[in-house]
Structure formats: structure tokens, C-alpha cells
Design a protein around this nucleic acid. Structure first.
Lengths: 334, 334
DNA sequence: GCAGCTATTTAGAACGTTCCAAATCATCAC
DNA sequence: GTGATGATTTGGAACGTTCTAAATAGCTGC
């Protein structure tokens, strides 16, 4: 009934060599004579042979498969990151198993078990909020190579690729101060992640450096809608900020809409600055000043770090930190 | 050196039963006695047993793995689609292998071979521009179940999930005509896909129905930047359109920026309408009227269709067509 | 106490690959 | 020729599951 897949054995028989030789050809081993290789490759093409990587992994323990877990597939920060990872993995003839943790650490655990079952060679993880501190250690016990990215649980416990959020936030604050602002507020995300705490830390550090005033922080859901609704909270801040820095561009865009609804013109009455420089920053009105974190670059870096780790399991732990760039548009009154 | 993974055999020994029994427990077979099941499950938890799905597939030929190929990971139309697919697959305890064809059919072929090698149970494909007509047939030969989605090669040759682009475009044209526009132009993508031809067909059909005038079509790269630069071409159309419908919201957003650079106020001097209702449609200035195609719904539908196909390989070919909804904002002068 | 059930369990052979150690082949120096 | 050397090739044993068919256990009715 069901036609079976072509096997090494069959190719071997057709080419008049042994299974082992064909296996060597498949793996491009230099051990096999040029003439034999050509003959075998020819037969393989003829018979439409496809190597069964599942069976291969069973024996050799490398699956050419990596797992990637992101907390969100709607935010383009993560999809650009994902695109970067996929590009590099594709070049290396690896396949990406994708999963969305929805920022839920229990779900993330389930996914990791699933990945383990599928025998991934390694995992690139953007840890969900609330991820247990000892996850990197546990994964080491499982002998499952890990690269953390964009966010980090228990710093230094695994390879990591990210952007210098602290420096990025500092660039943003400096820009606002240069524009003459002295009372600056922060519109923050609610979820507790390293990305959030670094951005807040950068904000506070930069305020001290520039002797500007912290006009307070407002928290909101990480959605366009949520930010829109907090516009009135921002306007109600007792310190009456003249500029507001947002956790990311999505919040900034939502905030700007909300401000306008309240009769406040962003970029004129109140400066608004985003972080991440998502594509949407070009589209808002006024166009949003932001800090480019280059998530696609981070994704590529993470993929390369994992590749390195797989090649050299005992290499020392590495960190790649992308230096952000400021992108000035009109929402900060230029 | 390397600690091996816990195997069925070891669990069996520890629990004092046979390998076969443990296998039955793992697969939740009703054949095993309640007492035995509990004992074995307990031991499995203790030993941190993880089933090796690679080995399982080898024998049983189901890998709980599906491949998904999209042409682009930056356009949120595709990432929302992907999110929909991933959600449903996750619920069914399946894993998604993700790849980006970059709208290159040769790359797409490579990816399919790679997926084949990994033994995916089936594939959800948004075919790249230039995909060979006979791909669905070839995949049937490979016994690789296929669901096409968002775009379609050789209609009716496989399951399909998509939106009614023709009806969507018609809704858009009707709206413009209702607003009093009689000369309407179309800003089109260049890549030859079914999505493009359906949208164009819907445009032309609706013009005929409403006795409005086709003010010409302009082609551009499918990027924000490309569309911005074609603003002058649009303005140079001899028929002097009063409204322009765009292949998607990205083009519409770019066009609006370009128009304003040329001193034309979108939504006032010239109505602009998008398609897809991406999140960015809310952010542009003026906010963009568009047609919601609900790609996340399509993704979920595609995933369910594939699941059905895997359960019943000989079921008749099915199509799921989502009915689009119009979303009126201010870019069409309301 | 035994035949005839049904409910459970099991040994052993796959599945398609890679690894290992050994076998074969060709070449060359003597 | 012969032995040694290096270059290719190869048979069989893994890898961790599931499948098949058959074995065993636990009942029932007589």
C-alpha cells in the first residue's frame, strides 16, 4: 500500500557497493574514491534518495535541528530576531523548531521537554517572564546546549546575545536632555524581564548623569491599546514631564494616539521617544525617534553562537552585545 | 564521558516490567492495567525519562512534526499567520519546523528536501513566486501531505486555506465608490502570486460592477520604501485618480508618506485604501482604511486542515476561505 | 479441575542510519 | 615475487523505539 522511502541499502545495491560506502558518500567523507562517489551520487539522484536524519541522529547524535523559543510572534522585535536566526541556521543546513512561550514559563517548560524529545542539538531561548533561575543549570544537566537571547536569566550561566539596553536607554535620555528637557518620565512594561530592568536601570543612570529629573514611571500592558489608555495617567503625573521615554515603540505609538485624543500634540506639547526602532516607528505621526537595537543582528549572532557551541562544547561562555544606534525623527521635536 | 539519555529499557528494568509495556504506557494505550501504568509513570518521572521521538518515528512513521514555509518573516501578515499555525500545532502537541523561502522557489525546493529528510508528517506552504505548477503532484508522489495557504499553485490540487481576496478587494472598491470616487487606481506588488492576481481580478470586477473607471495600475517593490518612491508615478497618472487602492497596507503606508512629500495630503486630496488590515494600519497618519483578512485565523484553519488530513489521508480535498471584513478609518476621507 | 474466555504482558524482529574493526585492493620498494 | 604501506571498502553491531504474534494470568461456567 504505502510506498516506502528509498534506503541506503537500496542505493547501495543499485550502485553495486556496500551500504557503508553510500553512507560515506552521503556524509561527503573524503575517504571514498572519486569514481565511486560520482557513481553513487548519480544513482542517488536517479532514485530520489533522501537521507533519513532521524535514523542518522539515533546513531550519531546530531540532528541538525535547533529549537527557538520566543515569547511573542506578533511583536516585530521578536520576528525580526527570528528571521535573523532562521537565515543563519538555513545557511548551515540546519532546521529551526519554532515555539511561542507566550511569556508563560510553564508553557516554556512543556516546549523544552517537547524539544528534548525531538532531539534538538541546542536551543536559542528568549526566556519567558518568571523563568526559574536554575533553568540554565538544568539544561546543562540535560546536556542541551543553550544560548539565551534578548533577555537573560541568571547572567553568565550560558552564552548570550543581546543589545546593550542600558547604553541604548542612556542614548535616548541624552538626546532628550540635549533637546532641553529636564523632567522626563518612563512608560514601562509590566512583565518582569531582564530587558525591562536593564532599560529602567539605564534610564535612572542616565538621569543621574545628566542631572535631569525623574518625573515618574507609569506601567501598562505591552500592547498598543494598553498604552493608549494610559495617556491620561501620564498627563496626570504630578511632576508634569516635558518628555516621556517608552519601553518600546509599540507603547510609544499607542501613547501618542492617546495623547492626541486628550488634546496633547506629541512631538510639540510633549516629546515622546521609543526604544527598539521597529519598522512602525517610521509610520507613526509624528515619526517616532527611537533607538535601533537591531534584533535581526542579534538573532544572527545568537545562531552563530549556538553553532560555535555545538562545534566546541567546552568553549568558554561567550556574550555578544550589539551596540544600539539612535534614530532621530520628529516625535522629539526636531 | 557523555551521559546517555534514559531509555525505555532502563525504565522497564527499574519498574520490573518489559520494554514493550513501558512503551504502551508512554503511548497511553488502554491495554495496560491501571496499577502497572501508575507504577511505570512514577518510575518515568523519577528517572526523567524523555521519549525519543526520532526513534519512535522510525518504527511508526509519525513524527508529530510539521513543516511551515513562508516567503517572508518581516511582513506581519505572514507572522500573524505563523502565530496562528503555531498555536494550533502546539495544542496538538506537534512541533513546527519553520523556514523562510524568501519568495525564491529554488530555496523552497531545498527546504522541502530538508523537511523530507527530517521526516515531517506534513507541510503547510505559502508557495513562493515562481513555484512549479506540479509541486503539489510531486509532493503527493513523496506521500507528503500538503496544505497550501494564503497563496495557491494549481488550484484544487491540495487542501487550501486562505481569505476571499476577490471579495475583499470588491469591498474596498465599493467603499471608495460609496465615498463618491469614480477614478480609482491600483498600486500593485510586482511578484506573480495568486494573491496578487486575485486582488487585481477583484479590483477589475468591482470596477465593472460599479461602473467606476480604472485609472491605471502602478507597480512597485513590496516595501515601504519602494511605495514611497512611486508616489510621483501615481500622481503622474494621466487619468488623475481621486482614490488609490493598494495591494497591502505596507504599500499604502509608504505611498501616504510619499504623497505628503509631494505636497498631497492623503485622505484629503487623495483617498488611500490598504488591504490586509495589518496592525500598522492604526498607526499611520491618517489612520488607514483597510480590509481585514485575518491571517491568524487562516493560520489556525490551515493547521486544522493539516491535522485532519493526517488523521484521514484519503478525505476529499478541502478549502477554507475566510470572509474579509472592511475596517474604515480616516484615509478614505471619513 | 479444566476448557474457554478476556485482559494483560512480553520476547524478538524490524526501522535506516552510523560506528567499528577488519578486509580488500593497489602500489611500491626491495 | 614478497612484504609493507596507504587508500578504499565492507559486514555486522549498535541506537531507542514500535509492531507482531504469541505467551501468561485471571476469570467464568460447568
Amino acid at each position: 500500500m504505502k510506498r516506502k522511502r528509498v534506503t541506503l541499502e537500496q542505493v547501495a545495491r543499485a550502485a553495486g557497493v556496500s551500504r557503508a560506502t553510500v553512507s560515506l558518500v552521503v556524509r561527503k567523507s573524503p575517504l571514498v574514491a572519486e569514481a565511486t562517489r560520482e557513481k553513487v551520487e548519480c544513482v542517488m539522484a536517479d532514485m530520489d534518495y533522501v537521507r533519513d536524519l532521524g535514523a542518522a541522529r539515533m546513531r550519531s547524535n546530531l540532528s541538525r535541528t535547533v529549537g527557538v523559543i520566543v515569547p511573542n510572534l506578533v511583536n516585530s522585535f521578536f520576528t525580526e530576531f527570528l528571521a535573523g536566526v532562521e537565515t543563519v541556521m538555513g545557511e548551515e543546513d540546519r532546521v529551526v523548531l519554532l515555539a511561542n512561550s507566550q511569556d508563560d514559563s510553564a508553557r516554556q517548560d512543556t516546549i523544552l521537554q517537547r524539544f528534548r524529545g525531538h532531539g534538538v542539538d541546542g536551543v536559542i531561548l528568549c526566556p519567558a517572564a518568571g523563568t526559574a533561575e536554575d533553568l540554565p543549570r538544568r539544561m546543562r544537566e540535560w546536556e542541551l546546549p543553550l544560548v539565551q537571547s534578548l533577555r537573560e536569566i541568571s547572567a553568565g550561566s550560558s552564552d548570550y546575545a543581546g543589545a546593550d539596553y542600558i547604553e541604548g536607554t542612556r542614548l535616548a535620555v541624552r538626546h532628550l536632555v540635549d533637546q532641553g528637557h529636564r523632567r522626563i518620565a518612563f512608560l514601562s512594561d509590566k512583565t518582569a524581564t531582564s530587558a525591562r530592568s536593564e532599560r529602567l536601570a539605564g534610564f535612572n543612570a542616565a538621569l543621574i548623569e545628566t542631572h535631569a529629573e525623574n518625573a515618574g514611571t507609569v506601567e501598562t500592558e505591552l500592547t498598543w491599546c494598553g498604552a493608549m489608555q494610559t495617556a491620561r495617567d501620564v498627563l496626570a503625573l504630578p511632576a508634569a514631564p516635558t518628555a516621556i521615554l517608552c519601553f518600546n515603540d509599540i507603547l510609544a505609538a499607542g501613547l501618542m494616539s492617546g495623547l492626541r485624543q486628550n488634546g496633547v500634540e506629541p512631538g510639540v506639547d510633549l516629546a515622546v521617544m521609543g526604544l527598539d526602532d521597529l519598522p512602525l516607528a517610521q509610520l507613526t505621526h509624528p515619526a517616532l525617534s527611537s533607538i535601533a537595537m537591531m534584533p535581526d543582528q542579534i538573532g544572527m549572532a545568537a545562531a552563530r553562537q549556538l553553532a560555535r557551541r555545538l562545534a566546541q562544547p567546552d568553549a568558554e561562555i561567550s556574550r555578544t552585545i550589539i551596540t544600539p544606534r539612535i534614530v532621530i525623527r520628529s516625535s522629539t521635536g526636531c
